[in-house]
Write a protein that binds this DNA or RNA. Structure first.
Lengths: 116, 116
DNA sequence: CGATTGCTCTAGTGCAAATAGAACAATAGA
DNA sequence: TCTATTGTTCTATTTGCACTAGAGCAATCG
């Protein structure tokens, strides 16, 4: 479990944690059943507040990536998803968006608009 | 020029304006050379502050969608882009993301990660 | 010149994000 | 059962951003 946060970044700390863990799950570095560090432990080793870690964990639970229960901890859920297809689509979309000189924000707005 | 803002929305007002204008330009409703209402005028008709409109206009300029200069106003730029391809990609990506039960946020994070 | 339009500066208000400490409650394991 | 572990809840403070507001400045156009 290699994780890091950058307090100088404009991205919120909890968001960095979510992105990091989610990425590792989607890429297969973290597998179903594996247990994440306890919130207090991770908080201490990353030098952030416990609430920040817990917030990240709770978001990951809401997104279905982990099982989170008190006394037990955070365990990577079994989603059995294949993310390869969406990863390819993301890559090609980013390429096209760059050709059109769109910003990441603009692309995000397009996706939100297409979500409904 | 049909624009509206919803002050009850969680999205910032300036963001709503940016998304609205950008969408109309990308869809062809607003064409190159066309002039947007003066900031003071639009602010009054939407009942928002002038600064809010100006902020939106400045973002649209940064993204290359409009020409914005004092004394002249805001004029739709000539990007001569064809957004059809990216629109299709966005749609198919959203479909796949939904199949995987990803959230819009998670998808946004993936795109940001793929941007570099 | 005079009107229009965006730009800059300063300032204040309200709200949500982020951080933080402390006590509580479920779970696991000895 | 007892105890340590772990997430949960509550309260509080700080920080940053969105939004509003007013005033004056600077470029442009007719």
């Amino acid at each position: 479990m290699l994780l890091s946060v950058n307090s100088a970044s404009t991205l919120p700390l909890f968001e960095q944690l979510v992105t990091g863990v989610r990425g590792q799950i989607m890429s297969g570095e973290l597998v179903s059943g594996e247990r994440l560090p306890a919130a207090r432990t991770l908080a201490q080793s990353l030098d952030v507040n416990v609430h920040t870690v817990l917030r990240a964990y709770q978001i990951l639970r809401d997104e279905g990536f982990i099982d989170l229960r008190r006394g037990r901890g955070a365990i990577v859920a079994d989603r059995a998803k294949n993310y390869a297809k969406v990863a390819v689509l993301v890559d090609t979309l980013v390429v096209e968006a760059k050709k059109l000189e769109l910003t990441p924000n603009a692309l995000g707005a397009l996706i939100r608009a297409a979500w409904e």
